[in-house]
Design a protein around this nucleic acid. Structure first.
Lengths: 392, 392
DNA sequence: CAATAAATAAGAAACGTTACCTAACTTGGT
DNA sequence: ACCAAGTTAGGTAACGTTTCTTATTTATTG
């Protein structure tokens, strides 16, 4: 049992963070009385060790210590003092205060990620990957989770500069209605990269990394059409009041090219969650009698999973009675007992590109800062068990 | 299309964060030249608005403005100046600097969460819930993701105080080997709450919120035994070199009470991921011939899903040939085509309790700070399709 | 040997807040 | 009129860094 302790005595005080501030400038000499307050534990109130302490122990000035510990290139301290400073820092267990550093330098060494729903495996994977990517380059990742609330999303976006990060990566969902905010954010001082999944590049001159939905969708349409599907449904996640995103339009156009009339394409609406998709699809399937679609495209894998569930609950077989295609190719998609066909985005490539772009902006190493970089990654269709020949 | 813009001209400059610092104290009057650098956009370099600016506009001193904006109780500014200050703050769009605040006050208004793997739906849900819980109480959540690396976990834990948060919530996996670190962290100045899922309360005097695995497991054992299962497997996630966690022991004991000999209980080892579980179980099933277990308990739902996949790939039927039980009751569990039976933890209750406990510590509102609070929530077995009568 | 350059270290200001203490006005009571 | 109390506001020092500028020492040169 890794967690079993031998003996620790009775529950001691959990020390509060603050300690009384030293008057004037003299170092508050820690009262020896506090040493033996709890004899068995030998706990003591330890002041935060500051650069000043290190400098004093090493017998140098603070700025000297700072210069040395940060290995600044210009100032060459002598090998000897350098060693003294490092030794002192080690001895005291010095840890620099990120807060003070940030206040002074205006740099935070961290970047933010705005996502719609951490609970969605797509986003948690995205966050995971992006974290790895930026960490390699010396940045922390701060996740800003909208928890599926559009008002929260807008709010967070507007308060971007409150965040005190060096830059932002913002995932734009089809629901994100950010015209004005994006524009003004772009004018603002905080570098950011927009991420998204759309039919082409973003229609705005902003650094961005997008998945081109077109290729994957085309492949999926080709595949299903060849398998004989002629009646389709698209499960969207847009609220009723909102304008349609580009994805259903795309689907409609592609199918039209193959001679499938618009009347054979049902657009369903739910939110991004499994539950919501399941409900929507269930009530749809129950209401649509003979004209039931044989193929369903969902806005993302979560919706697709909900749809699959709905179909099965309605007594349908996937894919015999209904073929289903998702988007994202969430890790879980290939582990479902009926594996889910999906349009795959390149997680890793997207996050790496976003990290590269953003950090180049932040560090000013971008060749021509006036021209926004737009990176587009292709998507592709991953065929799995959930797609099969049209039967009915 | 929410993202289509009317007209924005050609790609303008993405402003870097820094602006030249004002010499001495005089406000850097923004060069009018910069106004028309890009006429169509009307962008301008806006200095960060500081409290001082607000105070000047309102015609008061900084500290007065600070007092008013923070609604400090003691100092009663006149209604009139108060109004002036608020007006000025609004007009300038003042946003306080969290960094400066934190540096001065030593309070960060944020708490950290240490988890093993953000990619695991259990943890992302946990983070999501905890975020909601602490946010209600005015704190931000900073997620520290170990990405399944034990060395990273240890590293992050040791650097807790680097984090600059007011407190920490730490999930302890069976793999976390934290004896010394927990002890010294407890002696340290940073309040924290340990979370975990074990056979009882944590064996250490620390504020903690744990799920008691016992009840749920007992229920699952009872259920499967009654369904005729006599040969079991436990899919653990411990590395080979590590001591066994308490869970397989518990299972062995419970089954022993029912007369199932230890020889009928196989302990399998994999890591926490789906893939790893799938591999482990596949090779196990292929090797075990007639003595194949009829029921498999997995350390978590991800492993269970991997096991299910493995079983199906080996031509077995779930639950006819193999019943499977997971742990966590991840949202997805009930949406799998063969729904997963699982031992459910009370996410929401756990996160709320942790938030309450930690924030009470932080804010010093705990009745007797010397005695650690240990909260235990029961778990219970959720029977779904993946568990059925033993056939073979 | 003086003059200049390079190397090395220190001093002080600044980052944007909050906290503590002191100063200036009001009142009202004697 | 004068002093205590109350009310309202300002001055200044922190918080722990980095950065800019200045001062010392040592080496290099004509």
């Amino acid at each position: 049992m890794p967690l079993s302790f031998s003996s620790l005595g009775e529950g001691p005080v959990a020390l509060q963070k603050g300690f009384s501030r030293a008057g004037k400038d003299q170092v508050a000499k820690e009262h020896p009385a506090q040493e033996d307050r709890s004899s068995t534990l030998g706990m003591k109130i330890q002041r935060k060790i500051r650069l000043k302490d290190v400098a004093e122990l090493a017998g140098v000035a603070v700025n000297t210590a700072s210069t040395i510990l940060n290995r600044r290139p210009n100032s060459w301290a002598s090998k000897e003092t350098e060693a003294r400073v490092f030794k002192a820092a080690n001895e005291l267990g010095y840890r620099p205060s990120k807060t003070a550093r940030a206040l002074q330098s205006g740099r935070y060494h961290s970047i933010g990620l705005l996502i719609q729903d951490l609970t969605n495996p797509f986003f948690s994977t995205l966050a995971d990957e992006l974290e790895a990517a930026v960490e390699e380059r010396g940045y922390d990742l701060i996740v800003e989770n909208c928890r599926s609330s559009l008002v929260r999303e807008r709010h967070l976006f507007n308060d971007l500069t409150d965040l005190e990060v060096d830059g932002m990566v913002v995932w734009l969902s089809d629901n994100s209605a950010f015209e004005d905010e994006l524009a003004s954010a772009f004018k603002g001082p905080l570098p950011f990269v927009a991420l998204g999944c759309g039919s082409s590049s973003l229609p705005i001159p902003v650094d961005s990394v997008v998945s081109n939905f077109t290729e994957g969708l085309q492949q999926a349409v080709d595949a299903t059409f060849e398998l004989g599907h002629r009646r389709y449904a698209f499960l969207s996640a847009l609220a009723e009041g909102q304008a349609d995103g580009s994805r259903p339009d795309l689907l409609t156009r592609m199918l039209a090219e193959k001679g499938v009339p618009q009347s054979s394409i049902q657009i369903l609406r739910s939110s991004h969650s499994i539950d919501s998709a399941c409900e929507t699809v269930t009530s749809f399937l129950k209401s649509c009698g003979d004209e039931r679609p044989t193929a369903l495209f969902a806005i993302n894998d979560l919706s697709a999973i909900g749809a699959m569930r709905a179909a099965i609950e309605c007594g349908l077989h996937v894919p015999k009675d209904l073929s289903i295609v998702g988007v994202d190719d969430v890790p879980m998609a290939s582990y479902l007992p009926v594996t889910l066909s999906s349009i795959r985005q390149r997680y890793r490539k997207i996050t790496r590109a976003a990290a590269d772009l953003l950090i180049a902006r932040i560090e000013g190493t971008v060749e021509d800062p006036t021209v926004p970089t737009q990176v587009i990654f292709p998507t592709h269709f991953v065929a799995r068990e959930s797609v099969g020949p049209a039967v009915s």
